[in-house]
Computed example of a mutant assay.
Amino acid sequence: MIADNLHDIQQEIQESCALVSRDASAVTLVAVTKSVEADQARELVELGVTNVAENRVDKLLAKKAALADHDLTWHLIGNLQRRKVKQIINEIDYFHALDSLRLAEEIEKRAARPIKCFIEVNVSGEESKHGITPQALPELIAALQTLEKIKIVGLMTMAPLHAAEAEIRDVFHRLKTLQQTTQKQVATCTELSMGMSHDFKLAIEEGATFVRIGTALFKER
């Protein structure tokens, strides 16, 4: 089941890239394993997936320990409380949800090395979503310049779950525009973490370089 799902998703990534004349190698599939146990995550890893994500600190630490015999790239994609930074920050390769200067300063204090961070932007303006407003982005970017352990690699967002295709595309397009503007301030801000199981194809067409997929990988066929 997982092997078939993975094959289908890889095919869809290639097709979406081809539609907009992009190289599929420019898109990183990040497998979100929050809904499954370690044995299912292991099955996926043994099929060749090397980028694994969790949205909770405890779950990531447990999965990483269970899969310690594999060389994996670990992504924390969920909201991170400052009191938990010390536990997790040196266990991950990418953090997808940086949304405040105070959190960045705590990471700066606790990190043993530069951490690759995506700034989470609430492009859609939904109250239920985390992230800074697009208007607040330039000020945060400027403030982060003094922090040596924060490496801004890109921007992240989530589109509305139940929205028309045009609205979803608009959210992704606006994040791409913000990324291009931000890159003028910070040369390393080249990536876009956007797109999940239900909308990753649209995200790729709008420029996503990291897609976070969970449900579609583990669903019953």
Rank of each mutant, 00 (worst) to 15 (best):
F218K: 02
I107K: 11
P138C: 02
A24M: 15
E191S: 08
T190C: 12
Q185I: 04
Q81G: 06
Q135F: 10
E37S: 14
D71H: 09
L44R: 10
T190R: 15
R102H: 11
F218C: 02
I9E: 14
I2M: 14
A143E: 15
D99V: 06
V49N: 06
S124Q: 02
G131T: 01
E46S: 06
T188C: 00
K64P: 13
L29F: 02
A142L: 13
K149Y: 11
E43T: 07
Q40V: 00
S21A: 14
A111M: 07
T190V: 13
L178E: 10
I88C: 08
N79Y: 12
I152P: 09
M1N: 14
E43D: 14
A104C: 12
G214R: 03
V57T: 11
S100V: 05
P160E: 04
E148V: 02
I204W: 04
S100N: 13
N55A: 02
T133L: 06
I204C: 03
A65I: 01
L147E: 07
D8L: 12
H70K: 00
D170N: 14
Q40H: 07
T209L: 00
E43G: 10
I77N: 08
E105R: 15
A163N: 06
F218I: 00
L192R: 00
A66F: 00
A26N: 15
F210L: 13
L44S: 07
A3K: 15
I89P: 13
D39W: 05
A143L: 07
R212N: 04
D69E: 15
E108R: 03
E46H: 01
L137Q: 04
